[in-house]
Design a protein around this nucleic acid. Structure first.
Length: 106
DNA sequence: CCTGTGACCGGTA
DNA sequence: ATACCGGCCACAG
């Protein structure tokens, strides 16, 4: 039992969860954390995605915050890129907000 | 060792 | 509905 968290292993789990998000769906950082079994690791999820290389195959763009908004400042490079990728998968945002009811995980 | 930071979240006013 | 606040926790300096 020594339920000690292995951050290096947790990273792998997080990436696997994110990779498992179906195309056309989105999940919040906290939700990804929950699926990993660590509901309070939302911030850590973000820090892991931040470390991903530009050529990664991980669909990091399908992860947004709990409010249904992209976590970057509106108009920033990353914001525009993420919005573009989402739009490509048929995910539309209303006034910068994405409907979790519609695109959230089932 | 201590402090600040961040792709977060939920409660309260 | 928005704004503020405290909790959260790995990581960098």
């Amino acid at each position: 039992m020594a339920n000690r968290i292995d951050t290096s292993e947790l990273k792998q789990i997080i990436m696997q969860i994110v990779a498992s998000i179906p195309k056309g769906r989105v999940a919040s950082y906290g939700q990804v954390a929950s699926l990993c079994g660590y509901s309070s690791y939302g911030r850590y999820v973000g820090s892991v995605l931040k470390q991903l290389p530009n050529n990664t195959t991980i669909p990091w763009h399908r992860v947004i915050n709990a409010k249904g908004e992209i976590a970057f400042p509106v108009g920033s490079e990353a914001y525009i890129k993420q919005l573009s990728l989402l739009s490509k998968e048929g995910i539309e945002s209303k006034n910068g907000k994405i409907s979790m009811q519609k695109y959230g995980l089932v």
